[in-house]
């Protein structure tokens, strides 16, 4: 078990070192979402008076789209250099490979969400930081990077992988997006969400179901 954790950390820290050198993924996510946030800021007549509903929508729409673009980049590199195959040749259980990619994407998403929230609070003069969004971020990131890893590896083997990944990923994670938006809205408006517990259980349920099912199916998409 201890050995497994060590392997997991070895693979993920390797991803982080590559990212620190190339800065490709975090820069892609952050710049893309900054663009989305600034489009809304430029086009709304009074950005500091934005309704909580639209604000939450802006934050998560930009995270979802920039995240899926960055993910397709992440996995298309692995496919081009055949480095995923290199890890598959190593004595590492296949589930651990899946978990290590989830962990790496989880970290990338968290970093860029912090930057997006910072940008949002400056542009729209509001403070989205609340207990709500702090609960949302880990649950959303876990589910999003789990489904993203699965479909990222699938679409990296095909033509136009950016489009394919977004098309596959977004409809599947819609429940998570609804969960994240609803709770962020409650945080932005300061009005307690009446369905807080229901949403929370939905988010956790989504994570558990997809983590279990996709781990089980992961081996089937890998071997050819």
């Amino acid at each position: 078990m201890k050995n497994w954790v060590k392997i997991l950390l070895t693979i993920s820290s390797k991803d982080l070192i590559i990212e620190l050198k190339s800065k490709e993924i975090i820069v892609t996510i952050t710049l893309f979402s900054l663009l989305v946030v600034s489009i809304f800021s430029v086009t709304s007549s009074n950005p500091s008076n934005l309704s909580a509903e639209i604000g939450a929508g802006i934050i998560w729409a930009s995270v979802v789209f920039s995240g899926s673009i960055a993910m397709s980049k992440f996995f298309s590199h692995e496919e081009k250099d055949e480095t995923l195959n290199a890890i598959l040749l190593m004595p590492v259980p296949i589930e651990l490979i899946f978990f290590s990619k989830i962990l790496s994407l989880f970290i990338f998403l968290t970093i860029s969400e912090c930057l997006i929230i910072g940008a949002f609070s400056i542009f729209f003069n509001s403070n989205p930081l609340s207990i709500y969004i702090l609960t949302v971020i880990p649950i959303f990131n876990l589910g999003f990077s789990c489904v993203g890893t699965f479909f990222g590896i699938i679409s990296s083997k095909s033509r136009s992988n950016e489009i394919l990944l977004t098309l596959l990923l977004v409809p599947i994670v819609i429940p998570l997006i609804m969960f994240a938006t609803e709770l962020t809205k409650a945080g932005l408006s300061g009005i307690h969400s009446p369905n807080f517990n229901l949403w929370l259980s939905l988010g956790i349920l989504f994570d558990i179901i997809f983590l279990v099912v996709l781990t089980f199916l992961f081996g089937k998409i890998i071997d050819q």
Partner: peptide, 28 residues
């Protein structure tokens, strides 16, 4: 997906998996 992925056994299997994931997702 069926149109973009190179045809073969792998495509058919992954397509079936995607359909199953969609089915699992729908009650959620």
């Amino acid at each position: 997906f069926r149109n973009y992925f190179p045809p073969g056994d792998a495509r058919n299997r992954i397509a079936a998996i995607i359909a199953l994931i969609g089915a699992i997702d729908s009650p959620i």
